[in-house]
Amino acid sequence: MQRVNMIMAESPGLITICLLGYLLSAECTVFLDHENANKILNRPKRYNSGKLEEFVQGNLERECMEEKCSFEEAREVFENTERTTEFWKQYVDGDQCESNPCLNGGSCKDDINSYECWCPFGFEGKNCELDVTCNIKNGRCEQFCKNSADNKVVCSCTEGYRLAENQKSCEPAVPFPCGRVSVSQTSKLTRAETVFPDVDYVNSTEAETILDNITQSTQSFNDFTRVVGGEDAKPGQFPWQVVLNGKVDAFCGGSIVNEKWIVTAAHCVETGVKITVVAGEHNIEETEHTEQKRNVIRIIPHHNYNAAINKYNHDIALLELDEPLVLNSYVTPICIADKEYTNIFLKFGSGYVSGWGRVFHKGRSALVLQYLRVPLVDRATCLRSTKFTIYNNMFCAGFHEGGRDSCQGDSGGPHVTEVEGTSFLTGIISWGEECAMKGKYGIYTKVSRYVNWIKEKTKLT
């Protein structure tokens, strides 16, 4: 034993070699072989497995989906700052455009905790909710729209109204504003409101030439003092309507412009014939205590009207009353817009006519005020429907199939267009061939041609 100890002390290297040989010859039971080890760690190889990531292109799944990435790591994937920024906006807080917040056709661009709407022409605001041009839906104005110097929408209202708090709607500024039905039992019968379409306001006024200088022999019209197929109006439903009495009662109609003036057809009036105007009328054979009678003290036909040349060209006249009318729910003026808007309103496509005229061709006159909704007829169809001249200051309205029309005794009465609950004068009943005849239409004086003249002559002093 002493000898062994001496050998170990003198030859430590020998001992180490012996131990190493023993270990190498022993069977290893701690580690699995290569094949079995792979069965336990069965993990798919990654895209760049075996390579240094710093030297390969980034992978979106590896960089940002398996674990949260930084902007720089995302930049490695896209290799483009702009594309990385677009991805980053949604990656950080989701897609803010998912709810489609942009209105009126706006395009949404996502941002971090926010979004941006790219608005089409005519709109602005956070969600493109603000109209900035009158060309689109009248700028959301209830009545009139004008573009300011910086191309912003400025709404306005006709006389007797003021802008509401929203700067879009119009509200009454006087007790009985024009064009409004205020009798409670008839307010439910107000005709369907007309909503502004998209309009090209630059070209809204037709490029028409008034044929002022045409000389033409007097034409022989049949029954051209021209509501057939209409309905009984309720008291106060058309408070701007008046009836004219002269040699015979209810020979023509008219509309209240203001307390002192009536507008009617020029062919209705004769110099030297006494005319009485009755406002607030409903049943011409009954006294309903809503009527107001006034005498006409002055007749002003349009300066281009000449019955000797043509009885229905420039067929418009103004009547001055001896005493002002007292405005109330049964006696209310009709609204008159400017030339541009009167023309736009007419193009809405349908209007209402009213009167006490004959209820059928050569038949009896109506006792109760009649009204009828009539569609506008395109000019080409209008011209083809008659052998008589249709001037540019006239328009056609009615039904091709016949059966409904204005008729004798309705002449001078109103053709009105309702705009968001307020009625505007767009025409004056003038003439036609018979009444409600198939293929024939009622012919009306186009008020847009005469609004400046009306307003100039009827100013209240």
Results as ranks from 00 to 15, higher is better:
N113K: 09
F238W: 09
A307E: 07
E320H: 03
T81Y: 05
E67N: 04
G106F: 00
K362M: 09
V331S: 03
S148N: 12
V374C: 03
G357W: 07
L325G: 00
G409F: 12
S99W: 04
F399W: 14
F87Q: 15
N135G: 09
N38A: 11
F348H: 07
C128Q: 02
Q241C: 05
Y22G: 05
E456K: 14
V4M: 13
L372V: 14
S70G: 10
M6W: 13
V277N: 00
R226E: 15
F71V: 15
E323F: 11
K311P: 11
E340T: 13
E72V: 15
S329L: 04
N213Y: 09
F121M: 11
F71L: 15
G357N: 07
G351R: 02
L346S: 03
Y341D: 06
A250Y: 06
F196R: 08
T422K: 07
A380W: 14
C382L: 03
D405I: 15
T426S: 03
G403M: 14
I214A: 10
V278A: 05
S184G: 07
E433Y: 07
V331R: 02
K39E: 14
S406I: 11
C117Y: 01
D200W: 09
E116I: 05
I316Q: 00
V56S: 15
N295W: 04
I454T: 00
K188A: 13
R358F: 08
I443Y: 06
G105V: 00
N48A: 15
V202E: 13
T84G: 11
R162C: 04
T332G: 04
A307V: 08
L20I: 07
S350C: 07
A380H: 07
S365I: 11
S107M: 07
S25C: 13
V326F: 07
N127I: 05
F395H: 01
K152T: 09
F399D: 11
R162Y: 08
V183F: 11
S156M: 09
T264Y: 00
L319N: 00
D131W: 11
C396N: 01
K109C: 02
Y312P: 03
R379L: 14
P375E: 05
A233D: 05
N343K: 06
K260G: 03
E288Y: 05
A308V: 10
N59Y: 05
A279T: 03
V416H: 05
N222Y: 10
H314W: 07
C128K: 02
N393T: 14
S156A: 09
E86L: 15
A397R: 01
N38P: 12
S70A: 15
N203A: 12
I112H: 10
Q241T: 13
F78H: 15
S365H: 14
E159M: 07
Y47H: 14
I299R: 06
E285D: 12
P301L: 12
G402K: 14
T81R: 13
L20H: 02
L346E: 04
V377F: 02
I7R: 15
D322M: 03
N313W: 09
C382A: 02
T426D: 00
T381N: 15
V183G: 11
Q219M: 12
K188G: 11
I443S: 03
K126F: 10
G122Q: 07
A436C: 07
K293N: 06
S217M: 11
F360D: 15
T133K: 07
T16G: 10
F31L: 15
N166D: 07
C178P: 01
E86F: 04
K347C: 03
E142Y: 04
N104D: 01
S255K: 00
E124M: 07
K446R: 10
R43E: 10
F31V: 15
G432I: 04
C102R: 00
L32I: 12
S255L: 04
P177E: 01
P324I: 03
G58H: 13
F395R: 02
L32T: 11
R358Y: 07
A9L: 12
G179T: 01
F345R: 00
H289P: 12
K109F: 05
S187R: 12
E35D: 14
T276V: 07
V183A: 13
T389W: 13
N59Q: 10
R75Q: 09
N147A: 10
V359C: 07
K152D: 06
Y161I: 00
I428P: 00
T81K: 15
A337F: 02
M6Q: 10
L32K: 15
I284G: 08
S354R: 10
I299P: 02
M8D: 08
K137N: 14
H302F: 07
S187E: 08
H400E: 14
S406L: 13
K51M: 07
H282A: 08
I390W: 08
D131T: 15
V296N: 01
K126S: 10
N151H: 11
N48D: 15
E86R: 15
E159S: 09
N38H: 10
G236S: 05
E286V: 08
Y115I: 01
L460K: 14
K339Y: 12
L369M: 14
S114E: 08
I300G: 00
E53P: 08
K146P: 01
E433V: 07
N166T: 03
D378V: 03
R404I: 14
H289D: 09
T445S: 05
A266K: 02
E208Q: 07
I316G: 01
K347G: 14
W261P: 01
F395Q: 00
A164R: 09
P101H: 03
L327D: 01
P197T: 12
W431K: 13
E98T: 09
L318S: 00
P324R: 05
S99N: 07
K311Q: 05
S148F: 05
E159W: 05
